[in-house]
Design a protein around this nucleic acid. Structure first.
Length: 156
DNA sequence: GCCAACGTTGGC
DNA sequence: GCCAACGTTGGC
């Protein structure tokens, strides 16, 4: 089982959107970056856990947890010419882009801000700090535990 | 709204 | 295959 951090602009899709439909699965579609695509296609598996991160707001940070409920599969929004995420190079035979499905798990009692993460000496190697633009990132188990503790979650 | 970082595109 | 131009992301 692996840990990940997924970024989203809350104006586009927020943790509240996920939380409000707790038993529904959501497609994590529209990712159009090859490095992120490779994680979605090759490494992210059902049962993996996700830090849900809000970006491009006055106080960005991790707000909650989600769970992967379906392994990577072709992102069909790339095939819709009327859709926002259309890619003319994608086809059913060569989908190019992939997505996973996620489900709401838990809201953090306290949001963990980017500023807090940057200030924690054990978290300075996170891609979030070093390569902030990557929208799907691996998270080390230690980092996961630290962030959950900072967010007020009890860890067994 | 600005701008730095960085990913992608396309000419050569 | 290089690299300049361009577009996008995301913090501030």
């Amino acid at each position: 089982m692996s840990f990940w951090l997924f970024k989203t602009e809350p104006g586009c899709f927020s943790f509240e959107n996920l939380k409000n439909r707790p038993n529904m699965t959501e497609h994590w579609d529209g990712v159009r970056n090859f490095q992120a695509r490779n994680f979605l296609r090759d490494q992210i598996k059902t049962g993996d856990l996700v830090l849900f991160y809000h970006s491009s707001i006055p106080e960005p940070g991790v707000v909650g947890l989600a769970e992967i409920v379906r392994d990577g599969y072709p992102d069909f929004t790339a095939l819709d010419p009327n859709g926002e995420h259309f890619d003319p190079k994608a086809s059913p035979a060569n989908p190019i882009w992939f997505m996973v499905d996620v489900r709401y798990l838990k809201e953090l009692p306290r949001m963990v801000t980017l500023a807090q993460i940057k200030n924690h000496p054990m978290l300075t190697n996170m891609p979030l700090v070093k390569r902030s633009r990557l929208s799907i990132q691996p998270v080390q188990q230690e980092e996961w535990q630290i962030i959950l503790a900072m967010g007020g979650m009890d860890t067994p």
